[in-house]
Amino acid sequence: MNADECMETIKLTSRGGDSFELPYAAARLAHVVRDANDENDDGDIDSPEDVEILKVNSPCLEKVVEFLKHYHEEALTEIKTPLEDNTFEGNVKQEWYQNFLKGIDQPMLFDLVTAANFMAIQPLLDLTCLKVSCQLMGKSAEEIRQILNIPKLTPEEEETARRDHRWIFDD
Protein backbone atom coordinates (compact mmCIF):
# COMPACT_ATOMS: atom_id res chain seq x y z
CA MET A 1 0.00 0.00 0.00
CA ASN A 2 1.37 3.41 -0.92
CA ALA A 3 1.77 5.79 2.00
CA ASP A 4 0.53 8.82 0.09
CA GLU A 5 -2.86 7.28 -0.38
CA CYS A 6 -3.03 5.81 3.06
CA MET A 7 -6.24 7.00 4.63
CA GLU A 8 -5.63 5.53 8.02
CA THR A 9 -4.93 7.72 11.01
CA ILE A 10 -2.24 7.28 13.59
CA LYS A 11 -1.68 8.67 17.04
CA LEU A 12 1.38 10.57 18.15
CA THR A 13 1.95 10.42 21.86
CA SER A 14 3.81 13.13 23.72
CA ARG A 15 6.01 13.00 26.79
CA GLY A 16 3.04 13.94 28.92
CA GLY A 17 1.08 10.96 27.60
CA ASP A 18 -1.35 12.99 25.50
CA SER A 19 -2.18 11.53 22.12
CA PHE A 20 -2.90 13.46 18.96
CA GLU A 21 -4.60 11.81 16.05
CA LEU A 22 -3.81 12.70 12.46
CA PRO A 23 -3.86 11.04 9.03
CA TYR A 24 -0.81 8.99 8.35
CA ALA A 25 -0.34 10.79 5.05
CA ALA A 26 0.17 14.02 6.96
CA ALA A 27 2.28 12.52 9.69
CA ARG A 28 4.75 10.92 7.34
CA LEU A 29 6.23 14.32 6.62
CA ALA A 30 8.11 13.68 9.85
CA HIS A 31 10.90 11.30 9.09
CA VAL A 32 10.70 9.93 12.57
CA VAL A 33 7.24 8.59 11.75
CA ARG A 34 8.40 7.06 8.51
CA ASP A 35 11.28 5.34 10.23
CA ALA A 36 9.07 3.99 12.98
CA ASN A 37 6.85 2.44 10.36
CA ASP A 38 9.71 0.96 8.36
CA GLU A 39 8.63 2.83 5.31
CA ASN A 40 10.86 1.80 2.46
CA ASP A 41 12.08 3.93 -0.41
CA ASP A 42 9.04 3.27 -2.50
CA GLY A 43 6.83 4.53 0.27
CA ASP A 44 5.17 1.17 0.83
CA ILE A 45 3.89 0.26 4.24
CA ASP A 46 1.58 -2.33 5.60
CA SER A 47 -0.47 -0.64 8.26
CA PRO A 48 0.71 2.47 10.07
CA GLU A 49 1.37 2.29 13.76
CA ASP A 50 1.15 4.86 16.50
CA VAL A 51 4.38 6.59 17.43
CA GLU A 52 5.57 7.80 20.81
CA ILE A 53 7.48 11.04 20.66
CA LEU A 54 8.94 11.06 24.11
CA LYS A 55 11.18 14.05 23.64
CA VAL A 56 8.36 16.46 22.88
CA ASN A 57 5.88 17.77 25.40
CA SER A 58 2.16 18.04 24.88
CA PRO A 59 1.61 21.73 23.98
CA CYS A 60 4.45 21.59 21.53
CA LEU A 61 3.33 18.36 19.92
CA GLU A 62 -0.13 19.82 19.54
CA LYS A 63 1.39 22.66 17.51
CA VAL A 64 3.44 20.22 15.48
CA VAL A 65 0.39 18.11 14.66
CA GLU A 66 -1.47 21.26 13.68
CA PHE A 67 1.36 22.10 11.34
CA LEU A 68 1.48 18.62 9.84
CA LYS A 69 -2.24 18.57 9.17
CA HIS A 70 -2.18 21.91 7.45
CA TYR A 71 0.96 21.16 5.52
CA HIS A 72 -0.79 18.15 4.04
CA GLU A 73 -3.44 20.48 2.63
CA GLU A 74 -1.33 23.50 1.77
CA ALA A 75 2.39 22.91 1.51
CA LEU A 76 4.76 25.64 2.59
CA THR A 77 6.37 27.31 -0.39
CA GLU A 78 10.09 27.02 -0.22
CA ILE A 79 11.87 29.87 1.52
CA LYS A 80 14.29 31.41 -0.94
CA THR A 81 17.71 32.57 0.08
CA PRO A 82 18.91 35.27 0.01
CA LEU A 83 15.89 36.57 1.77
CA GLU A 84 13.69 39.09 0.07
CA ASP A 85 12.91 41.07 3.16
CA ASN A 86 13.98 41.36 6.74
CA THR A 87 10.61 40.57 8.26
CA PHE A 88 9.08 37.18 8.77
CA GLU A 89 5.90 38.22 7.03
CA GLY A 90 7.81 39.48 4.03
CA ASN A 91 9.36 36.11 3.43
CA VAL A 92 6.47 33.83 4.27
CA LYS A 93 3.58 34.98 2.18
CA GLN A 94 1.10 32.26 3.13
CA GLU A 95 -1.28 33.57 5.70
CA TRP A 96 -1.74 30.38 7.64
CA TYR A 97 1.96 29.98 8.27
CA GLN A 98 2.25 33.60 9.26
CA ASN A 99 -0.44 33.08 11.85
CA PHE A 100 0.97 29.75 12.91
CA LEU A 101 3.97 31.37 14.56
CA LYS A 102 2.26 34.60 15.52
CA GLY A 103 2.26 35.36 19.18
CA ILE A 104 4.15 32.34 20.40
CA ASP A 105 6.69 32.93 23.11
CA GLN A 106 10.40 32.28 23.04
CA PRO A 107 10.42 28.95 24.94
CA MET A 108 7.68 27.64 22.71
CA LEU A 109 9.54 28.69 19.59
CA PHE A 110 12.65 26.95 20.74
CA ASP A 111 10.64 23.86 21.69
CA LEU A 112 9.26 23.86 18.19
CA VAL A 113 12.71 24.12 16.64
CA THR A 114 13.96 21.25 18.73
CA ALA A 115 10.88 19.19 18.02
CA ALA A 116 11.16 19.85 14.29
CA ASN A 117 14.77 18.82 14.45
CA PHE A 118 14.09 15.71 16.47
CA MET A 119 11.13 14.62 14.39
CA ALA A 120 13.01 15.59 11.23
CA ILE A 121 10.29 17.78 9.77
CA GLN A 122 12.23 19.83 7.26
CA PRO A 123 9.58 22.48 6.40
CA LEU A 124 8.81 23.16 10.05
CA LEU A 125 12.50 23.45 10.77
CA ASP A 126 12.90 25.93 7.92
CA LEU A 127 9.96 27.96 9.11
CA THR A 128 10.98 28.13 12.74
CA CYS A 129 14.62 28.82 11.92
CA LEU A 130 13.51 31.66 9.72
CA LYS A 131 11.48 33.00 12.59
CA VAL A 132 14.50 32.87 14.86
CA SER A 133 16.77 34.57 12.38
CA CYS A 134 14.20 37.25 11.65
CA GLN A 135 14.32 38.10 15.31
CA LEU A 136 18.04 38.57 15.05
CA MET A 137 18.09 40.37 11.75
CA GLY A 138 19.34 43.92 11.74
CA LYS A 139 19.78 43.92 15.50
CA SER A 140 22.85 45.14 17.23
CA ALA A 141 24.89 42.73 19.28
CA GLU A 142 23.44 44.13 22.50
CA GLU A 143 19.92 43.66 21.29
CA ILE A 144 20.57 40.09 20.25
CA ARG A 145 22.01 39.40 23.63
CA GLN A 146 18.93 40.86 25.20
CA ILE A 147 16.56 38.89 23.00
CA LEU A 148 18.35 35.66 23.59
CA ASN A 149 19.24 36.39 27.17
CA ILE A 150 22.97 36.02 26.80
CA PRO A 151 25.45 37.72 29.13
CA LYS A 152 27.49 40.66 27.92
CA LEU A 153 30.96 40.27 26.51
CA THR A 154 33.90 41.37 28.53
CA PRO A 155 35.94 44.11 26.87
CA GLU A 156 38.73 41.63 26.15
CA GLU A 157 36.32 39.25 24.47
CA GLU A 158 34.91 42.06 22.41
CA GLU A 159 38.40 43.11 21.44
CA THR A 160 39.23 39.59 20.26
CA ALA A 161 35.99 39.32 18.39
CA ARG A 162 36.67 42.53 16.56
CA ARG A 163 40.21 41.57 15.75
CA ASP A 164 39.09 38.21 14.44
CA HIS A 165 36.62 39.80 12.09
CA ARG A 166 38.68 42.21 10.16
CA TRP A 167 36.57 41.45 7.13
CA ILE A 168 33.82 43.49 8.67
CA PHE A 169 35.37 45.74 11.25
CA ASP A 170 37.84 48.25 10.04
CA ASP A 171 40.26 48.21 12.95
Binding site: I79, T81, P82, L83, N86, L125, D126, C129, L130, V132, S133, C134, L136, M137, G138, K139, S140, A141, I144, R145, L148, I150, P151, L153, E157, E158, T160, A161, R162, D164, H165, I168, F169
Partner: peptide, 19 residues
Protein backbone atom coordinates in the same frame (compact mmCIF):
# COMPACT_ATOMS: atom_id res chain seq x y z
CA UNK B 1 20.63 26.99 9.70
CA UNK B 2 19.21 29.96 11.53
CA UNK B 3 22.26 32.05 10.83
CA UNK B 4 22.30 31.09 7.19
CA UNK B 5 19.17 33.15 6.71
CA UNK B 6 20.85 36.27 8.02
CA UNK B 7 22.27 38.97 5.79
CA UNK B 8 26.02 38.80 5.41
CA UNK B 9 26.90 41.81 7.45
CA UNK B 10 24.76 40.72 10.37
CA UNK B 11 27.42 38.16 11.05
CA UNK B 12 29.42 41.02 12.45
CA UNK B 13 26.91 41.38 15.23
CA UNK B 14 26.72 37.66 15.84
CA UNK B 15 30.44 37.62 16.33
CA UNK B 16 30.06 40.17 19.07
CA UNK B 17 27.14 38.47 20.77
CA UNK B 18 28.71 35.54 22.46
CA UNK B 19 32.17 34.03 22.43
Amino acid sequence: KCFAFLPIDDHANLALVSP
